[in-house]
C-alpha cells in the first residue's frame, strides 16, 4: 500500500436517508478508524448496504454529515476507497480488460495500466484466466476478480457488500483468505454480512443494525460474548428479528 496521508477516520454524524417520506436509515453515528475491520451485521433490510453506499458516495444522505480525515466532506482522490458488490459487476470484456478499464477510469496511462494489471493478475492468481470473458468465470472467480479490480487501484479503505453471500463454502473460504490478505496489507475493511461465522473470523469491530438504525457498535469479542441489547442477543441466538 502506498504511503499517503490517511483518509480516515470516516465519521457518520446523525446521518439519515428518507425516500418518498419513508425513513430508510436514521441517526447513523459511526466512526471507522484506520486499520480496523468492521463487519456490519443485521437482518435483511437493516440498512447495511445503504450504509456502505452512503459512505462510498453512491447515495447522498438527506440528513447529517459524513466526513473524512480532517473533516473534509469528500475524499480528493476518489480511488482511495473502493467498493465490492454482492453480485460482482462484470463488464462484457476479458478478465484483463476488466482490470485495465478500471485503471483507465482512474487515470492510469497505457503503460502503467498494463503493468498494474499484470501485477494484479499475478497477486490474485488470475493470470491463467486473463484472456477469458469475465462473465464466463464461476461466481467465486468473478468475486475474486471484483476484489482484484478494487485492489488494483490501491485503496486504503474497501467497502464490501456481502461479498460471499452467493458463494459456496469453498469459494467463500477462498474469498475470506483474500480479505485476510487485504487486512495484512494494512487496509481498512468495512463489510456487510449476515454470516455470523464470517463475522467471528474476520471482524475487529461489529456494527449491529436493525430497522435502519445502528443498535450496537462494539469490539467483536465483546459483541459476541456479551451483547448489550436484546435484539443483538436474539440475533446471535439465531432468532428471527
Amino acid at each position: 500500500m502506498r504511503d499517503l496521508p490517511s483518509i480516515l477516520p470516516l465519521r457518520f454524524e446523525g446521518v439519515g436517508l428518507a425516500l418518498g417520506g419513508r425513513e430508510l436509515v436514521t441517526d447513523l453515528d459511526l466512526v471507522v478508524e484506520r486499520g480496523e475491520t468492521t463487519v456490519l451485521l443485521g437482518p435483511n433490510g437493516a440498512g447495511k448496504s445503504l450504509l456502505l453506499r452512503l459512505a462510498h458516495g453512491l447515495v447522498t444522505p438527506s440528513r447529517g454529515r459524513i466526513t473524512w480525515a480532517a473533516g473534509q466532506e469528500t475524499v480528493a482522490d476518489r480511488r482511495r476507497h473502493a467498493m465490492v458488490f454482492q453480485k460482482p459487476v462484470m463488464l462484457r470484456r476479458s478478465v484483463h480488460a476488466n482490470l485495465t478499464h478500471a485503471l483507465a477510469a482512474a487515470g492510469f496511462g497505457w503503460r502503467r495500466r498494463r503493468a498494474r494489471a499484470a501485477e494484479t493478475l499475478d497477486h490474485f492468481r488470475l493470470t491463467h484466466l486473463a484472456g477469458r470473458p469475465a462473465r464466463a468465470l464461476s461466481g467465486g472467480e468473478q468475486q475474486r476478480l471484483a476484489i482484484a479490480r478494487a485492489w488494483a487501484l490501491d485503496p486504503e479503505l474497501l467497502f464490501l457488500d456481502e461479498p460471499t453471500s452467493q458463494l459456496d463454502p469453498a469459494a467463500t473460504r477462498a474469498i475470506e483468505e483474500l480479505l485476510f490478505g487485504l487486512k495484512a496489507e494494512g487496509r481498512t475493511l468495512v463489510m456487510a454480512s449476515h454470516d455470523l461465522g464470517q463475522a467471528r473470523r474476520l471482524a475487529g469491530r461489529i456494527v449491529f443494525m436493525s430497522g435502519g438504525r445502528i443498535i450496537e457498535h462494539a469490539g467483536a469479542k465483546n459483541f459476541f460474548e456479551s451483547p448489550r441489547t436484546i435484539e443483538a442477543a436474539k440475533f446471535l441466538a439465531g432468532e428471527l428479528l
Partner: peptide, 16 residues
C-alpha cells in the same frame, strides 16, 4: 441498470 453502481464507484458518471 447492471453497471451503474460499479461505474459510479470508479468515477465514471454521466458522459464519462
Amino acid at each position: 441498470g447492471e453497471y451503474g453502481e460499479h461505474l459510479r464507484s470508479i468515477g465514471l458518471t454521466g458522459a464519462r
